[in-house]
Amino acid sequence: MTKRMQWTLALFFVALIIWLGWRAYQHRQAQSGLAEIKQRGALRVGLDASFPPFESLDENGQVVGLDADLARAIADDLGVELEFVNIGFDGLYDALLIKRVDMLLSGLPVDPYRSRDVAYSTNYFNAGQVLVTRRDDIQLVDDLMGQTVAVEWGSLADMEARRLQKTIPNLQINPQPDAQSALQFDIAIVDGVTALGNQQMRIVKYLSDEWYAAAVSVENSALLAEINKTLARMQESGEMERLQEKRIGE
């Protein structure tokens, strides 16, 4: 073996050792967040309890809502206690990044610009704008030709209706003071939460997406995997749908 080959091999092994060391460090970092939660015996969930039906305080000061139910399921699957940390919406990400909380679950829209620091779970709710109706003849957006759609004046639903008006002939808009009033009419555009809360209207189509997900620190991939496992289990078993009906349909 020539001296040059010996050097090449030596360099290769040094690089391999550095790479393996780095992988081991990353793995330890990823596991350490989860290990810390288990050692502590409690999962700290950050939320802003002012957003029913996702999270709000009941008459006893307890956090209730869809997010609270999901957090409880995640903590149960991890075998730890659940601790809610109530924080103003603006401070949620900071609280996560300084490790004041382990995760956020707070009607939180997925923000791709935060992916350097934050990792999101699989989506669990779409709060985007929805076309709903109680009429059987409205099956597609194109069926709105010549129809009147009710919206909350000035809202994002109104924005979607005005957009549709540019492509669908003779579509009329019926502006209402709020989303609930819009649901009194046969065809309406409302946000996903309002749509799911109304059992008499059928969802025709989501016109825009506003996905909610849980968020963890980007280093905490082991916890993220556990959260996703719980969400997937709840989706498959139908528990997610039941909870949504219970909390949002209330």
């Binding site: 603006d90 829209p109 923000d111 935060r114 994002l156």
Partner: peptide
């Protein structure tokens, strides 16, 4: 230039994709 994904988005007249909100049109 891009969505803030917070309440700040609800101060604007136009979306980052240049879609005019109803307030713009009014």
């Amino acid at each position: 230039p891009w969505p803030a994904k917070t309440y700040l988005d609800y101060f604007t007249f136009v979306t980052p994709d240049f879609i005019p909100k109803p307030i713009y049109e009014e």
